[in-house]
């Protein structure tokens, strides 16, 4: 048990802060790693320096959180959270592009990030938080997320729009 605890990163060793344009390269690296594993549809041309900035547009708020390792200033994790106003006027929170640097996977960096994200979404008036996961996602991943209170509620069906449509 002691050995397992040693593997976890202490929350005091991690600084959770908002994204800055200087984080562009580090976040791109993390997103590449995530894309290689889960094919998140990353288009590098579209992930610009400004993409992770706190964003405000009508009926949408977005912030990208960065987990920084206090000791060396390394960006070890990231996650975008959005609050979207639905047709009923309710704000629904979404966690997107949630990723941890390979070397820090399983060390609870994601959990520290998620706790802060839910706190922020609550302050934005969100009544619930959703995570979109691929239909064929790893069951282990769904179990991990389920442990912290996320239950499946929707099945989203998608059709790719082609030139013939």
């Amino acid at each position: 048990m002691q050995e397992e605890d040693d593997e976890y990163v202490d929350k005091n060793e991690i600084i959770i802060r908002n994204y800055r344009t200087s984080d562009y390269q580090a976040t791109l690296e993390i997103l590449r790693q995530l894309h290689d594993t889960y094919d998140i549809g990353l288009n590098e041309q579209r992930w610009k320096e400004s993409s992770g900035l706190r964003q405000f547009k009508p009926n949408l708020k977005r912030i990208t959180l960065i987990a920084e390792y206090k000791l060396n200033g390394e960006v070890v994790g990231m996650g975008m959270l959005e609050a979207v106003k639905n047709n009923l006027g309710q704000y629904i929170g979404y966690l997107d592009n949630w990723a941890t640097k390979k070397e820090y996977i399983g060390k609870r960096v994601g959990e520290i990030l998620a706790k802060r994200a839910i706190y922020i979404l609550k302050s934005w008036g969100c009544e619930s938080v959703r995570i979109n996961i691929g239909y064929n996602a790893d069951k282990k991943l769904i179990n991990v997320i389920g442990k912290v209170g996320f239950n499946p509620i929707l099945i989203v069906l998608e059709k790719k729009i082609t030139d013939e449509d």
């Binding site: 908002n18 400004s50 900035l53 706190r54 964003q55 405000f56 547009k57 009508p58």
Partner: peptide, 14 residues
């Protein structure tokens, strides 16, 4: 509510 020091914010309008 909070705008951090040196922080850039992105505003998008249709």
């Amino acid at each position: 509510d909070i705008w951090f020091q040196q922080e850039e914010l992105l505003f998008i309008s249709p």
